[in-house]
Write a protein that binds this DNA or RNA. Structure first.
Length: 431
DNA sequence: TGTCCACTGGAAGGGAGGGCTT
DNA sequence: AAGCCCTCCCTTCCAGTGGACA
C-alpha cells in the first residue's frame, strides 16, 4: 500500500494486518515438516499387532484359555501388574485372538470386557453383562432401579440362552471389591453350577497386589485358579515398545535419537509405566508440532513431562466437589499465612469460616477428615497422622501445589471467585 | 506408670435423587 | 401415583490410640 496516496480507513488497515498475520501462521504450519504420520498409534486404547516383551504372558494366557476350543470350561484367571504394564492390552489381544480362532473351530465365544473403575458396583456390573446381550435377548436393564436379585436372575437367563462360552473380563477388579465387597465374585464364580448350556469364566485384572486380602477364601480359591503376573517394564523394554510404536506414529527422521531413550528412562523411573512413556512421546510430538519445529528433541520431552504433570493436577483440582475445593482453599490460606503444617482442627476452623463467608453450610469434622484423606490420596495435599503426645493425635497437613495455581483455577469458577478477594489482609481477620 | 488430649476411623443409618414396576 | 430399589453423600456415635507430660 506504500505511498500511492490511497489511504484505508483505520479498521481496514487492521484487517489487512490481521490477514497478513493469519496468513503467516497458516504458512508456518503448512511449511513445517509434518511430525505425525498416525497419532492414534500412541493412544492407550490402541492395540498393536505385536506386543514386545509380553510373549511369556501371552503364552500363559493362551494355555489357560485353550480348553475352550476343546469345549471345556477354562479356569478363572487372576492377572496382576502395575499400571502401564500391558495387562489390559494383552488380555484384549489374547481374547480377540481366541474369538477369531474359535470361529474356525465353531465354538461360540463371547468376551465381555468391563472396566470396574467406571462400572464400580455389583448392580452395574451385572447390568452391563445383561445389556451386552440385549441385541439377542431384547432385555435391557436400566442403570438403577431393579432389585439386584432380579438382575442376577436375568443374567442367568440371557447367558444360558444357548450353548456358548462367556468370558467376563473384570478390569481394575480391586476397585470394585473395595467399594462393593466380594459378593459379586462369589455369585459369578459359582454361576456355572446354575447354568445348563453356557459356561462362564472370569478374568480378573488388578494392579493392587494386596487386594487379595479383601477376598473371602472361597472366592479367592476359585478366582485365582490361575495367576498371571505382569512385571514392570525396564527402560530397555520400554525403549523397544516406544521404538515399535514410533515407527508407525511419526514420519521418518523427525525424532531425535535421544527422544525415545529419554521417554523410556523417565517412564521407567515411574515404575515402568508404558502408558506414561507413550504419553510423553505423544505430547512431546504435539509440542514440537505446535512450535513448528521440524524435529522432536529432548527439550520437547522435558516440556512434555512438565505439561503432563500440570494438566493432570489442574484437571483433578477443577473437578473436585465444592466442599473439597473450599477445604483446599482453607489450606491455601493457612499456607499464605505461614501456618503450615497445620492440624485437622486448625484447618477445620478455617474451613468453617470460609463456608460462612460463602454462606454455605459447613460439613461435620468427621466428613472433612475424610475429605482431607481424599485430597491426600490425590496428591494435592500431604496429610500425615502424627501424635503430639499430651496434645493429642491429629493429622499434619501440608500443601502440595502452589497457592498461585489453586487461585488461578478458582478464578475461573463463579462460585469460588469471591474467595480470591480474601487476600492477606482479609485473611488475617479470617484466620 | 498412668493419664489424657485431639483427634482417627469404623459402623450404622438417614435421606435425597435417580430410576424402575404396577 | 404409590411402592420399590440402588447409590451417593452425609451425620451421629463412639471405641481406639501414640506419645508427652505429671
Amino acid at each position: 500500500m506504500g505511498t500511492g496516496g490511497v489511504s484505508f480507513p483505520l479498521e481496514m488497515k487492521s484487517v489487512i494486518a490481521m490477514n497478513d498475520y493469519l496468513g503467516s501462521i497458516f504458512e508456518k504450519y503448512l511449511h513445517a515438516k509434518k511430525i505425525f504420520k498416525n497419532k492414534e498409534v500412541l493412544r492407550h486404547s490402541y492395540t498393536p499387532k505385536e506386543l514386545p516383551h509380553r510373549k511369556e504372558q501371552i503364552e500363559e494366557l493362551a494355555h489357560i484359555l485353550v480348553p475352550v476350543l476343546r469345549g471345556e470350561t477354562p479356569s478363572n484367571v487372576f492377572v496382576y501388574g502395575k499400571t502401564g504394564t500391558g495387562k489390559t492390552v494383552t488380555i484384549k489381544f489374547v481374547t480377540e485372538e481366541l474369538k477369531r480362532i474359535s470361529e474356525k473351530y465353531q465354538v461360540p465365544v463371547e468376551v465381555i470386557y468391563i472396566n470396574c473403575e467406571i462400572v464400580d458396583t455389583q448392580y452395574r456390573v451385572l447390568a452391563n453383562i445383561v445389556n451386552y446381550f440385549k441385541g439377542e435377548s431384547g432385555v435391557e436393564v436400566p442403570l438403577v432401579g431393579w432389585p439386584t436379585d432380579e438382575v442376577y436372575a436375568r443374567l442367568r437367563e440371557v447367558i444360558d440362552a444357548r450353548e456358548r462360552f462367556v468370558i467376563i473380563v473384570l478390569d481394575e477388579i480391586d476397585k470394585l471389591i473395595k467399594k462393593s465387597g466380594d459378593d459379586i465374585l462369589y455369585s459369578l464364580t459359582r454361576i456355572n453350577t446354575e447354568l445348563g448350556r453356557a459356561k462362564v469364566s472370569i478374568i480378573g485384572i488388578s494392579n493392587d497386589l494386596k487386594f487379595k486380602e479383601y477376598l473371602d477364601a472361597r472366592v479367592l480359591s476359585s478366582l485365582s485358579e490361575e495367576e498371571v503376573v505382569f512385571p514392570p517394564y525396564d527402560a530397555n523394554q520400554l525403549r523397544d515398545i516406544l521404538m515399535q510404536r514410533a515407527r508407525d506414529a511419526f514420519n521418518e527422521g523427525v525424532l531425535d535419537d535421544a527422544v525415545v531413550p529419554l521417554c523410556a528412562a523417565l517412564a521407567a523411573r515411574e515404575h515402568g509405566d508404558a502408558r506414561r512413556a507413550l504419553d510423553l512421546l505423544r505430547v512431546a510430538g504435539e509440542i514440537a508440532e505446535r512450535e513448528g519445529a521440524s524435529k522432536v528433541t529432548e527439550h520437547h520431552v522435558r516440556l512434555a513431562q512438565d505439561k503432563i504433570e500440570q494438566d493432570t493436577m489442574e484437571e483433578v483440582i477443577k473437578t473436585l466437589p465444592l466442599h473439597s475445593k473450599i477445604l483446599l482453599y482453607s489450606v491455601v490460606l493457612l499456607d499464605e499465612n505461614g501456618e503450615l503444617p497445620a492440624n485437622t482442627g486448625d484447618v477445620y476452623s478455617v474451613y468453617k469460616k470460609v463456608c460462612d463467608y460463602l454462606d454455605i453450610e459447613p460439613l461435620t469434622q468427621r466428613r472433612v477428615s475424610d475429605l482431607i484423606n481424599e485430597l491426600d490420596m490425590l496428591g494435592i495435599i500431604n496429610a500425615k497422622v502424627v501424635s503430639k503426645g499430651r496434645y493429642g493425635r491429629t493429622k499434619e497437613i501440608r500443601l502440595n501445589v502452589t497457592p498461585h495455581k489453586v487461585k488461578k483455577i478458582f478464578g475461573a469458577d463463579d462460585q469460588l471467585r469471591p474467595l480470591l478477594t480474601l487476600n492477606l489482609s482479609g485473611q488475617r481477620r479470617l484466620v
